[in-house]
Amino acid sequence: MLRVGAHVSIAGGIDNAVGNERAVGGNCGQIFTHSPQVWQDPNVGDEEAEAFRETTAEHLDGPWVVHTSYLVNLCTPKEDLRAKSLDSMQKEVDAADKLGIEFVNVHLGAHTGAGVEAGLDNAVSVLDELSIPEGVTVLIESDAGSGTKLGGDFEHLAYVLEESDQDLDVCVDTAHTFAAGYDLSTAKGVKDTVEEFDDVVGLEHLRCIHLNDSKHACGTNKDEHAHIGEGEIGVEGMETLLNHPELADVPLVLETPTEDGKSFEWNIERVRQLREE
């Protein structure tokens, strides 16, 4: 079964996300529990959590993903930022548990001069301090790899998964992966990238894909999303990804732009057109 959805708004209450997802044609999806630009608690009420769980069970196939705040930096060497990141992550996994959401997605962040290995070790140490509820899994998201940000190389993801005491998995963002230098624009490029991911990380750890095309060329480290099939990854790459047998059951979450008269609804329909059933 094709599970595809988008990152939708929770304006007016988290339970509104279900209707917002249905409105764009999605059967799974992703949310922020609060504004991602500030340090803020999820603040999920009992009634809206119950309504969210009930309407999700009634109308969607799932899963849902909680995307953490953009301020979270697991790799930081700064103690104050580390403490804030840990506190924020703990509140996100607790909120996911309350909402019945299976996945919490997080970027590793930037080492800001500490170095790659130290940055990855910092991330592992924060993750290992979390008390993750049963039924919730933290996903480490692949990154575009600009500056001192980590997660652009598959080896970074594998290191964190191997070194952490937690049972972690991975979310691959296609635009980020492409920007980080993994060519997804051709059938051969997709095949080679999937094989490399399997060799380095393991496909059993791939639990979600952020399906986004890229406005910039492969290896530029520039993170700007494009409509499905209309960016630098293009139709061949997207069609190959969507029909790769090893990826067929992985949930797809779109973070495509709203521009040129096209929004999530157009992009989800585009995915359905490119997927061979």
Rank of each mutant, 00 (worst) to 15 (best):
T220Q: 13
L130Q: 05
D260K: 08
A179L: 09
A49M: 08
E204T: 07
H7I: 11
E232Y: 13
A158K: 13
D223S: 07
N27P: 07
G231K: 06
Q40V: 12
I10R: 04
H176T: 04
L168W: 06
H216K: 15
R22C: 14
A248G: 02
Q40Y: 05
I10Q: 01
I10N: 02
G234R: 10
E129I: 09
H67Y: 06
T258C: 04
D192K: 01
D249K: 10
K98H: 03
T137K: 06
D80C: 08
G45W: 09
D198I: 00
C171P: 12
R53M: 15
V44N: 14
G261N: 06
D153A: 13
Q37W: 09
K78I: 11
H176S: 13
M89Y: 07
C218K: 14
G19Y: 09
K91Q: 15
S85Q: 11
G151S: 03
F264K: 01
G229F: 10
P257K: 15
V8R: 01
D213C: 13
V18A: 10
L168V: 00
G219F: 03
K78C: 03
A187W: 07
G219M: 02
S88V: 00
H67T: 14
G189N: 13
A187H: 05
V250R: 00
N20Y: 11
Q30Y: 03
K188E: 14
Y159K: 11
E255M: 10
S263L: 11
N16Q: 12
T193K: 00
A95H: 03
V235E: 09
G109K: 08
K91D: 11
V170D: 07
G113R: 05
H67I: 10
L139Y: 05
H205E: 06
V104L: 01
R82C: 04
S9A: 12
N16R: 11
E92Q: 14
A217M: 03
G5L: 15
V201C: 11
E277L: 13
A144R: 07
F154P: 06
I101D: 02
A49G: 11
A248C: 08
S185A: 12
D199K: 13
V136Q: 00
E232N: 12
G202D: 03
E269P: 01
P257N: 11
H244V: 07
A226P: 02
A11Y: 04
P42G: 10
E21W: 00
H111L: 11
G13W: 05
D97Q: 15
E259D: 06
V170M: 09
A51Y: 00
A144G: 10
A96Y: 02
L127T: 00
L71H: 08
